[in-house]
Computed example of a mutant assay.
Amino acid sequence: MTITQLRYVLAVAEHQNFTKAAEKTFVTQPTLSMQIQKLEEELDILIFDRSKKPIELTDVGKKLVQQARNIVNESERIQDIVDQQKGFIGGEFKIGVIPTIMPTLLPMFLNNFIKKYPKVKLKIEELTTEAIVERLLDGHLDAAIAATPLENESIKERVLYYEPFVGYIPSNHRLNQKKNIDISDLNVDDMLLLEDGHCFRDGILNLCKTQKGFDEDHFQLESGSFETLVKLSNEGLGMTLLPYLHTLDINPNEKEYLHYFNEPSPAREVSLIFNKSELKMHIIDALHSTIAGVVKGAITFQNVQIISPLSKAKSD
């Protein structure tokens, strides 16, 4: 049994196709098939049910794949140890970022990180929290930036910062005359939210669901971006909540519509998250240090109340 054979098994399990798996592992299809067959003969089992289209794992194959992933991860840790001993911080690093963090956080730290660690090749992808968790667990991401806590035992979380929610309240809204607002002031009947699938939306629902008369299906309008929510709000269609970093780039003539919460401010916890196998920790440490250092000067709020990003169904 070899680690190369296990890599081939993982590739076929992922793509459910020998030809695609061979392309992804840069070998010919006959070579990949032969090596997997050798492994099956050695173990005296069938890993894949080839009669199914697409190919499926057998019951014992499913268990083998779980262990194969652990073995391959541990083998990669050897290179990590060598890199850390040599003080080398480089190589490809795949990171996922949720949509409500990507546009504000990335410009703040990316240039600094690239200059400080030029040998690291970052591959950044915008993904939902659900997709991030899935890819972290199957090894297709090295780390991610997301709202936490996620309550997943297989994922480790290192807090980067706490980002308060800020009310964006147009001049014709019932709360506009209030300098600061309270959670009890919120009413879902006049609030604009991000569309379903955004954890920032789930955080707001969790914030509001303790209020009297809460009805999760009672929203006027939903949108895929904060920019659209602000425009809709300006048209008098309701108020919205924005993450604090997003408010730093808002148009100067719109800043008068920003209303902060009385302390403790409701906030989301933003963390660098990664698989508990802890591969490439030297790059994770470098990322955490760079991001936390940059954001520290931008967010000075101390007294905050962390709002869960988990959907209502998961948090109940």
Rank of each mutant, 00 (worst) to 15 (best):
L57Q: 02
V60K: 04
V60N: 02
V60T: 03
V60M: 01
K62V: 10
K63M: 13
K63W: 08
Q66Y: 09
Q66F: 10
Q66L: 14
Q67M: 11
Q67I: 13
N70S: 13
V72T: 11
V72H: 08
N73D: 15
N73C: 09
E74Y: 12
S75T: 14
E76H: 14
E76L: 15
I78G: 03
I78L: 15
I78D: 09
Q79E: 15
D80Y: 03
D80I: 06
I81M: 12
I81V: 14
V82C: 00
V82D: 11
D83T: 06
Q84H: 11
Q84M: 15
Q84N: 13
Q85C: 01
Q85H: 14
Q85F: 15
K86S: 14
K86T: 09
G87P: 09
F88D: 10
I89D: 05
G91Q: 05
G91D: 09
E92H: 05
E92A: 09
F93N: 01
F93K: 02
I95D: 05
G96V: 05
V97Y: 03
I98F: 03
I98Q: 06
I98T: 14
P99C: 10
T100A: 15
M102T: 03
M102I: 03
P103T: 04
L105Y: 14
L106S: 02
M108F: 08
F109H: 06
L110Q: 06
N111I: 09
N112F: 02
I114E: 05
K116I: 00
P118M: 10
P118R: 07
K119F: 12
L122H: 10
L122T: 08
K123R: 14
K123N: 14
K123G: 00
E125H: 08
E125G: 08
E125R: 11
E126A: 13
E130C: 00
E130M: 12
A131F: 00
V133T: 12
V133Y: 05
R135W: 07
R135Q: 13
L136W: 06
L141C: 04
D142C: 13
A143C: 07
A143W: 10
A144D: 09
A144V: 08
A144H: 06
I145P: 03
I145Y: 00
A146G: 03
A146M: 01
A147V: 03
T148I: 11
T148A: 10
T148E: 05
P149C: 06
P149Q: 10
L150G: 02
L150W: 01
E151F: 11
E153R: 10
E157S: 05
E157W: 01
R158C: 08
L160H: 06
Y161T: 13
Y162V: 10
Y162A: 09
Y162W: 05
E163Y: 02
